[in-house]
Each structure stands twice: as C-alpha cells, then as structure tokens.
Amino acid sequence: MRRTIPLVITFLIGLYPIFAFFVPHGSISGANDWLDSALVIVAAFALPLGTVNVVMTNTTKLKRKSRGWQYSIVLLAGLTVMAFYGLVGGTGVHPSFQWMFVNMVSPLQATMFALLSFYVASAAYRAFRARNVEATILLIAAIIVMMGRIPFGDMMTRGMMTPLSEWIMSIPNAAAQRGIIIGAALGAASMSIRIILGIETTYLGTGKD
C-alpha cells in the first residue's frame, strides 16, 4: 500500500493534464487549474520545512563549532532580522525591511550576477583554446559571432561580420539547438510515460513493497 497509493495518484494526476491539453471544455480545464493552484499551496507548506532545516543545520554547526561556523552566525542573524521586520510589517512592507532589501539583499544579488561575466571570460578562454579541429571551429565561429555583435567588427570588415554572424546563429546554431530540443522533448515524453505507468519509481523514494 505504501507504494501502490502514490502510484495510483501519480497515474491519475499525471494523465489528467494530458487529457486537459486536448480537451478545452471548462469542466476539464477548471480542475486542471485547480491542480496548478494545489501545487503552489503544497510548495507553500514545504517552505517552512526548508526554513526549519536551515535553522537546525546552522545551529548544529554553531554548537559543534564546525568548519565555517562564523558564517552560520551571519546567516541566522540575517534570517531572524529579516523575518522579524517582515512579520512586523504585516501585509505591507516595513521601512526597515525595505531598507535592508534595497541596500543589502539587492546589491548582493547584483554582485553575484555581475560575477558571471568573469566566469564567462574564464570559461571562454578554456573553451577557445584551439587544441583540436572541433575547438578550432568553435573558436573561429565565436570570433565571427562576437565581431558581428559589435560595431567595431563591421567597421573592420566593411559590414561583412553582421550577416555572417546572423547566419551562424540562425542556421547551424539554431539547427543544433532544435536537434537537442527535439531529443529532450522525446526523452521527457518517454520519462513521463514511465512515471505515469509506474515503471519509473526511483523518485518516490519508497523502494519496493
């Protein structure tokens, strides 16, 4: 039973959206919308579980003075202060919460995102080393695309780079991407059928009866 009930639920709930995809009638799509809302509600219930885990993990780290315990102090302090002002503000936004979000959270997020440019540079350096034929083709294609995206490239080549770059992006690149997308869609369909039919059960974490 521990395995059968989840499998029956998976079968019914998995088949219903497929049915609703082809049947637009209000009586069918209404229930489908309800299922979407139910997922959001379940996720909302799971969030406190995650928060409790964060608190417990970092409290244990502090107690044991595990490696990097100092970071746990910052995390727990940040969590407590933000949660306090978030709750004090009620349905509105408390000015202190707003101040911390604008002056602390947002700049930190922007910093992480900005770091991406440096990571792109270092990854590109590694990828573009012309060690073999494939890497050399990649390097040449990348140079053409990069030059085609900046005015300087066109200026140097009398307008040749932009159309060449567009061709690379819209023909060979798009063809390769579509190949991957078609393969992935088939893979997703195959996996979905396995899950709906109860053949694939590893995600349930319930093992065998």
Binding site: G183, A184, L186, G187, A188, S190, M191, R194, E200
Partner: peptide, 28 residues
C-alpha cells in the same frame, strides 16, 4: 537533453526501462 532522461533507465539496467529508451530512439 535526452541523455538526462535516459540516465535512470540506463543505470538501472532493467529491461523494461531500457525498452522505453528504445522507443524514444525509434520515435526520434
């Protein structure tokens, strides 16, 4: 892409799961 979805079946080596990968290849 598709290799990600095939992985669990591939790792399990169960014939039933491998059958679904074969079907995926035929569809492709």
């Amino acid at each position: 892409g598709e290799e990600l979805y095939a992985a669990s079946a591939y790792l399990s080596k169960e014939p039933i799961l491998l059958g679904s990968i074969k079907a995926q290849d035929i569809a492709k």
